[in-house]
């Protein structure tokens, strides 16, 4: 319990620090977006009017007060207003989050299926001869730019094969290519870590023991290696989420889908910092929560860790003799 509380506190500290970093980067630095927008001569605003606007946006208050103000706002679910449209950021996000959530979760599921599939194919006893092909696949996948993949998929499936219409596809049809585009680069690091940990586990002495008990390769893989090999992949969950967000920005732009990614892309083009700040913080929060859940869940999945965390680990530095 003490461990859980400590871990929660740590998560909160990381979030606060992430907020601070984002705030410093986006809000506190000179050349703020307000000036860019309102000092534009075409608007013909007088200095007084600009000053009034700055007060309205809270830009004239000293930075520490702005910092506390935004922090309290964020804690209360108030993300400020978009500079471009004046709409509350919260409202903008609420409109697009469901779409992105659907895309991202489908993409994630597809990525996991793809990665597990590749790992199994790379280790299948009957496929030794072509295993190298599957082993090379993840390296190819990581090297592919997401935006290019999306474009190539559109070219192939929409223009060459004419399987999926470009204009006004149905809700399901419209999701196939974006999900695939998102899934391929996400699956690559996952497949890499799975393949590597399967290789590692296959080299452990206990696998040799099971072999010496008469187990075949399939038995060894499914009944002994699988669970051990999956464990390291869990630690990647947070990083994969980050990749999903980045992938969503690009995928939504390529396919012209409304979503958090698209909103972010537009916010950057228009220097609309409050939106970016909110997106950054939301992602950081999700990242921290994912890592927290993985950390708390890990001891349940790996019995060894439960013991180590409870401090039963051996303290002695005494070394076992290396058997010749």
């Amino acid at each position: 319990m003490k461990y859980v509380l400590g871990r929660l506190g740590q998560a909160a500290a990381v979030l606060l620090a992430a907020f601070t970093v984002a705030f410093v980067l986006l809000q506190a630095m000179p050349g703020d977006a307000l000036m860019i927008k309102f000092e534009n001569p075409e608007l013909g605003l007088s200095p007084d009017q600009i000053a009034a606007l700055r007060v309205a946006y809270g830009a004239d208050t000293p930075l520490p007060i702005q910092y506390v103000h935004s922090l309290l706002g964020f804690l209360g679910g108030d993300f400020g207003y978009s500079i471009q449209s004046g709409t509350p950021v919260k409202q903008l996000l609420a409109e697009v989050v469901p779409g992105t959530l659907l895309l991202a979760s489908l993409g994630f599921v597809a990525a996991v299926l793809l990665a597990v599939g590749i790992t199994i194919l790379a280790n299948l006893p009957g496929l030794r001869r072509i295993a190298d092909v599957f082993r090379a696949l993840p390296s190819l996948f990581v090297a592919v730019p997401v935006f290019w993949l999306g474009i190539v998929l559109i070219q192939v499936f929409s223009f060459q094969l004419r399987l999926i219409p470009v204009v006004n596809p149905g809700p399901v049809e419209g999701l196939i290519l974006p999900v695939l585009t998102l899934a391929v680069p996400i699956s690559a690091p996952l497949a890499q870590i799975l393949i590597r940990s399967v290789d590692d586990v296959l080299g452990y002495p206990f696998v040799a023991v099971v072999r010496a008990r008469g187990a075949g390769p399939w038995w060894i893989l499914s009944k002994n290696v699988a669970r051990n090999a999956v464990l390291p992949a869990f630690t990647m969950a947070g990083v994969l989420f980050g990749e999903l967000i980045g992938g969503a920005v690009v995928t939504e732009t390529v396919f012209g889908r409304a979503g958090v990614g698209r909103l972010t892309e537009q916010a950057v083009s228009q220097q609309d910092t409050p939106i970016l700040l909110a997106v950054v913080l939301l992602s950081a929060t999700v990242f921290v929560v994912i890592n927290l859940v993985v950390d708390l869940l890990y001891p349940v999945l790996d019995p060894r860790l439960g013991a180590r965390k409870r401090g039963i680990a051996r303290i002695s530095r005494e070394r076992k003799v290396v058997a010749v």
């Binding site: 990381v14 970093v21 986006l26 972010t264 950057v268 990242f287």
Partner: peptide
């Protein structure tokens, strides 16, 4: 811990934040 904070922000979003700056 500082490094952890940088890890917590998805890399594309981090680079976009720096680009805005």
């Amino acid at each position: 811990r500082i490094v952890d904070v940088f890890l917590a922000i998805p890399s594309l979003l981090l680079s976009l934040s720096i680009i805005i700056l």
